[in-house]
């Protein structure tokens, strides 16, 4: 099981990892080990570096185990090289071999590939994920790279301001970010602030710019998200009671890979992702008037962000 610990720089991820490892209080958990962003190899041979954990544990048959660990990452030929002469990628493989050779139950990874180039990162991720899954190692993988987290993780933990604010499966976290901060960090678009009230038996999200139906409970201080892929664009208004239909004006269209990212002002500014075919069919261009359609159930509420300001802090302390 791989848990990605995701969060912005300075959120306290590395500190959290060091606490788990026992480096903060000096009570090291022997069935656990840690790989850092830098390879941190000692000025010894590759084999001697990989052997360190085994030596510390006074294990037998060290040489054979070291050989196996090196082969795991395809670096058997580096065995007798002086470790500090290796390239960045080779060195990080040695660091991984050194951690895995002691057969840890839990592996902590602190941005292990952040110093490598993009292409190598992909190879390294695949290679390491395979080894971790083969050996069923419980892994906590710290990263600030969302793509990396989504690729490697069975579960995502989001840390913001030294607190784990959400834990869940990747899709779950992406679709239902727990707070405004999580949504912001994940780069989720169409986040609006307002009030959810009951109007003739239907829940309505409303602020002074926009109003639409939301399948949610009443809340005075509400953050809601409408995922761009849940928004349909059309030239004529759609007529279904379960759907919201807003009239808006296109502000900008820009290509974003295979899709076109379209900004539409309909009270609030909405982002919709559409295909090239739709752009041509609808004649999407700045100034064009269109209708946005999305289901009430596509409107998701977020927990309110943590209160800030001196008054709140004082109350919290008391």
């Amino acid at each position: 099981m791989i848990t990605a610990l995701l969060g912005p720089n300075g959120a306290g991820k590395s500190t959290y990892l060091r606490q788990l490892m026992g480096l903060a209080n000096g009570k090291i958990e022997p069935s656990m080990t840690m790989v850092f962003q830098e390879p941190l190899l000692f000025d010894l041979t590759v084999a001697e570096n990989v052997a360190l954990g085994l030596k510390f544990r006074r294990q037998r048959k060290i040489s054979a185990l070291v050989g196996q660990a090196l082969e795991l990452f395809g670096i058997g030929h580096l065995r007798n090289r002086r470790a500090i002469t290796l390239s960045g990628g080779e060195a990080q493989k040695v660091a991984l071999a050194r951690a895995l050779v002691i057969e840890p139950k839990t592996l902590l990874l602190d941005e292990p590939f952040a110093n490598l180039d993009q292409t190598s990162q992909i190879d390294f991720r695949r290679m390491l994920k395979k080894v971790i899954l083969q050996r069923a190692i419980e892994t906590i993988w710290v990263t600030h790279n969302k793509a990396e987290a989504l690729v490697v993780a069975d579960q995502i933990m989001i840390m913001i301001n030294r607190e784990i604010v959400q834990t869940g499966q990747p899709e779950e976290v992406l679709q239902k970010p727990a707070t405004k901060e999580v949504a912001d960090f994940l780069g989720i678009e169409n986040i609006f602030h307002g009030e959810i009230r009951d109007k003739n038996g239907q829940s309505i999200f409303e602020n002074d710019r926009v109003s639409f139906a939301a399948a949610a409970v009443e809340k005075a201080d509400a953050w809601v998200v409408v995922h761009p892929e849940d928004i349909l664009l059309s030239l004529e208004p759609t007529k279904t009671s379960a759907r919201n239909c807003l009239r808006g004006t296109v502000l900008a269209v820009e290509p974003a890979g295979l899709i076109y990212r379209t900004q539409i002002k309909a009270g609030e500014i909405f982002i919709a992702n559409i295909t090239r075919a739709s752009v041509e069919e609808l004649g999407v261009a700045p100034g064009k008037e269109l209708y946005l359609t999305f289901k009430a159930t596509a409107v998701q509420t977020l927990d309110s962000p943590l209160p800030e300001g001196p008054a709140c802090r004082q109350a919290g302390r008391g």
């Binding site: 480096l23 090291i28 656990m32 080990t33 840690m34 941190l40 360190l52 954990g53 510390f56 902590l108």
Partner: peptide
């Protein structure tokens, strides 16, 4: 970090 790494390896 070098010291942490050694400790994390069980020194």
């Amino acid at each position: 970090k070098m010291k942490w790494q050694a400790l994390a390896l069980g020194a």
